[in-house]
């Protein structure tokens, strides 16, 4: 599974982005998007398109956790969204599959419901929800830093490190 995580401000500017791969089931923590190099802008493009969906879905649920809201079939990418009280969106693009070489040897040991294989299983949903909740806590602390100007890009290395840790822990 490969992941691309973005924090989008209420005015639709990206405040933070982070690309990573799964660390579960022998994953290296590196992203291996199937669309290779072009994933760097394709992922941004897909997320940007999903913001529209988020704006519709947000009214259907009282929860901050909006689950998987969008799917981009050509790269088999799924987009999950968590929306804070101030309309800041945590968007996570997740794409199943690992590095091609290792894929064959690993599939046999993984059940079809593991988060590496099935992006729509309840386990995946729960793992991402846990990840989002943890990021939310860290994010609130970052907002409380008096030297952080609301709306600015989040440059804090501590924030990045803790998002990375949450990614390793849950995804």
């Amino acid at each position: 599974m490969s992941y691309y995580f973005v924090v989008v401000s209420p005015t639709d500017t990206p405040m933070f982005e982070y690309t990573f791969g799964t660390s579960k089931a022998g994953g290296s923590g590196q992203a291996h998007f199937r669309n290779g190099e072009s994933s760097r802008y394709m992922n941004q493009f897909i997320i940007h398109a999903a913001i529209d969906v988020a704006e519709e879905v947000q009214w259907l649920s009282p929860n901050m956790w909006l689950k998987v809201i969008d799917h981009y079939a050509p790269t088999n990418s799924h987009i999950s969204c968590f929306m804070t009280g101030t309309n800041v969106r945590f968007m996570l693009l997740h794409q199943p599959g690992g590095p091609p070489a290792a894929a064959g040897s690993r599939t046999s040991t993984l059940s079809s419901s593991s988060i590496a294989q099935n992006p729509l299983s309840p386990q995946t949903d729960e793992a991402i929800r846990q990840f989002m909740t943890e990021v939310y806590e860290v994010w609130v602390k970052t907002m409380m830093n008096p030297f952080y100007k609301i709306g600015d890009e989040i440059k804090s290395p501590a924030f990045r490190a803790r998002v990375a840790a949450a990614g390793r822990k849950w995804l």
């Binding site: 830093n145 008096p146 030297f147 952080y148 501590a158």
Partner: peptide, 8 residues
């Protein structure tokens, strides 16, 4: 100093 990170 809770929450504080100095400007970088």
């Amino acid at each position: 100093a809770d929450f504080v990170e100095l400007p970088d």
